[in-house]
Design a protein around this nucleic acid. Structure first.
Lengths: 210, 210
DNA sequence: GTCTATAGGCTGATAGAC
DNA sequence: GTCTATCAGCCTATAGAC
């Protein structure tokens, strides 16, 4: 059976090599620069060989998106252990936007292309298995913790709050990527301001300010 | 001189025809479907002719983006006359997101592609002449009016507030376009909620709630 | 079974005839 | 000013060598 195993191992190795090479190209020259021919050339195989591991170019992009999503979840989990809910939300928010900045092409792939690509990424196997909206649930949990810890947030809807935070974070992240010139302030400052305003705005409307 | 004028008129007519045709293709089948060959075929000229009116495909897209920007400014100006600052901000916000929904491809062109395209759109002649950030200034003015009208907003920074609103509106608009499935609530509801939370959060921090 | 070589049909862009 | 012809590049698919 060793032969079959070696074959499978070699097959996986080549697949990984394709993905790594594709990732490097996308990272260095952007999504548009990713062509099967260039990948094939770099790994010293013919273009047709790629079709034995992926159905087409889109499937490679899909897989890159899925890998990026894993990194994003990792970024958020890094801050998930912070005890104070407000500090945790701040840390996770900065982590989210920092991921978008450091992996701009992956972020664009996941959240800024047409619905088809986005849905394909989110519906690929590993994502469907539950790794997908883990990121969102981490934010929801942070808001739930906030609601438990502070009386002025007792009546807060954690899911709705998480959605609002996501909207703001995506606004910052995507504008920084596409229209950075029109959003000159540092990302961290924008994030902190957005989180502060959101938290202040989400307090129960009949709570005394302070 | 009549001959030269007719020539120039004919030249402009063809240019407009190219743009209108391109717009129709993009509107019906998306940005990716826009090819010079298809435009040429539809207007019954050879592909090479297009290069006499535009340097390349990107310049056509740039011009389409500029035209879209004009429509966006029009959408915002429609609501700019509303007296009550809060109502005005709500109306402008809904107008912004409605534009993004109704002209999704134009919105994507202006705000969701790479910096190069976005900057090209904003730096094209007509935009440079001042029609560019008029949209943003309309929002700033609305916040300035709010600050004058309501004491609890007296210390508000209109430009910073406008930036925060823009971030939220772009978050909603772009996620609706790219990841609509993960943002199932109606756009208007999301906008109203975002505006309400932002306005509540932007009040002076030592103002009694109410 | 795995891969090479190649063909077909797109694309943007350009040179040169008229 | 407009065309034909053409180049170089892309993705996709497949026949056939090994």
């Amino acid at each position: 059976m060793g032969i079959a195993e070696r074959r499978q191992r070699q097959r996986k190795d080549l697949r990984d090599k394709i993905l790594k090479t594709a990732q490097r190209i996308v990272l260095k020259e952007g999504l548009a620069a990713l062509t099967l021919r260039r990948v094939a050339e770099k790994i010293e195989y013919s273009p047709a060989t790629l079709y034995l591991h992926f159905q087409n170019r889109d499937e490679i992009l899909q897989e890159l998106g899925r890998m990026g999503l894993e990194v994003l979840v990792g970024c958020l989990e890094e801050s998930a252990g912070v005890d104070d809910p407000v500090a945790r939300l701040g840390a996770m928010s900065r982590g989210y936007v920092r991921f978008a900045h450091e992996h701009a092409e992956a972020y664009r792939l996941i959240f800024m292309l047409d619905s088809a690509t986005a849905e394909a990424v989110f519906h690929s196997h590993a994502v469907k298995a539950g790794e997908g909206d883990r990121a969102f649930r981490l934010i929801v949990e942070a808001f739930a913790a906030l609601a438990r810890a502070r009386p002025e947030y007792a009546s807060l809807d954690p899911a709705a709050a998480a959605e609002q935070l996501w909207i703001a974070l995506h606004g910052i992240a995507s504008l920084k990527i596409s229209c950075g010139k029109f959003l000159p302030a540092p990302a961290d400052a924008l994030v902190d301001r957005a989180v502060a305003t959101l938290l202040f705005g989400l307090r129960s409307r009949d709570t005394p300010a302070g």
